[in-house]
Simulated scan of single mutants.
Amino acid sequence: MGPALGYIARRIRRNRHTRVVAITDNVIPHEKRPGDRPLTRYFLSACHGFVTMSRSVLADLRRLHFKQPAQYQPHPLYDNFGALKAKPVALQALQLDPTFGYLLFFGFIRAYKGLDILLEAFGDARLRELPVKLIIAGEYYEDAAPYEALIKQYDLESRLVRATDFIPNEKVADYFCAADMVVQPYKNATQSGVSQIAYHFERPMLVTDVGGLAELIPDGEVGYVVKPTPIAIADALVDFYEHQRESELAAGVWAKKKEFSWSEMVAALKAVAG
């Protein structure tokens, strides 16, 4: 998209009064390809300013020597998936057994999102003793074979809920509201829209300490921030269930979510537009 967006931005600037501001999720793509940097530079050099979704992206801009006005502003809540539902209602909608607890991995399944790490963590002997299942809700973006091999290796089939087809918007609330906690075991990241959906539905979160993920998840207040390793993830999941921390962390999420408003995003866009 770099050539197209760069061309459009330059055409717009010709009127000498319209300001071009980029909302940047990533500056450097997760999956690198030849030509990424020159094409990215072509687009970014046509912008008057930037609003970044994480501090790590702001740092990437500076490393690339872009000096236009830039400001970090977390994405507002994704509140377009409907209202919160009571957990029993969501479980019934998904036809899930309410005698189990459920963890949610949500979104496209891509290598950098670390589902393989989570599956290895779920093979931990301590977790096998708990009445907990993992919901995998999202389409495969790549070959499923490596994940299937891990499921077989750790004998996880009976402990999984597979929803690896397209998830329509009207079903998103059910998956989040049925979950005890949302798990994002990413290997690298800048930020994730999944966090803002989880905030909307007031669900505790576990994220790995990569990129900008931890910026939005105060460790011990709204969830866990851990190293991207199976043992670190397993330790946190065991702590969550053994100490029954869902209510405590959900209350922290409810308090924190008030910071992510659309008015703050609009103010940031105006500030960098100049």
Rank of each mutant, 00 (worst) to 15 (best):
A90N: 04
V51A: 02
R63N: 04
R33N: 06
L91T: 00
L44N: 00
Q92L: 04
F81Y: 15
P88R: 15
A46K: 03
Q95G: 05
D97M: 10
H48A: 01
A90Y: 02
V89S: 13
A83V: 14
G35A: 08
A46M: 04
G101W: 07
H65W: 07
L39W: 14
G49S: 03
K32H: 14
S54N: 08
A46F: 04
T52H: 09
F43D: 01
K85L: 15
R37M: 12
A59T: 07
T40Q: 13
K67L: 12
A86E: 15
D97F: 10
H48T: 00
Y78K: 09
C47R: 03
H48F: 04
G101D: 06
H48G: 07
R63S: 05
P29V: 02
S56A: 11
Q71D: 09
P34M: 07
F43R: 06
D60M: 05
E31H: 10
Y42D: 01
Q73W: 07
C47A: 12
F100Y: 15
P34V: 03
Y42F: 15
F81T: 08
D97S: 07
K32D: 08
K67H: 15
E31G: 01
T99S: 13
R62P: 01
N80D: 11
C47D: 02
K85I: 08
Y72G: 05
V27C: 10
P74L: 10
D36A: 05
Q92F: 03
Q68C: 05
H75A: 05
D36C: 06
F66Q: 04
V27R: 06
F100M: 06
H30I: 01
T40W: 11
S45H: 11
Q95K: 15
G35T: 03
L44G: 00
T99N: 11
R62L: 12
A93N: 07
Y72T: 05
H48K: 04
R62G: 02
V27N: 03
G49T: 00
I28G: 01
H75K: 07
V57T: 14
K67I: 07
S54Q: 09
A59I: 06
F81G: 10
L84M: 12
A46Q: 04
R55D: 09
S56R: 12
L64G: 00
A93D: 03
A86Y: 10
S45M: 08
S56D: 11
D97H: 09
A70V: 07
P74Y: 12
P88Y: 09
A70G: 08
M53R: 11
R62V: 03
D97R: 09
F43I: 02
Q68P: 03
P74K: 12
N80V: 13
K67S: 15
A90D: 02
V89Y: 12
R62I: 03
L91D: 01
A59P: 02
L58V: 02
P29M: 09
Q92D: 10
A83K: 15
Q95L: 09
A59E: 13
G35Q: 09
L94V: 00
R33I: 03
A90L: 04
R63C: 01
Y72V: 03
F100E: 00
L91H: 02
H65V: 01
V89R: 15
Q71C: 14
Q71E: 13
L84S: 14
H75R: 09
L84P: 10
Q68T: 02
A86M: 13
M53A: 13
R55H: 12
Y42P: 00
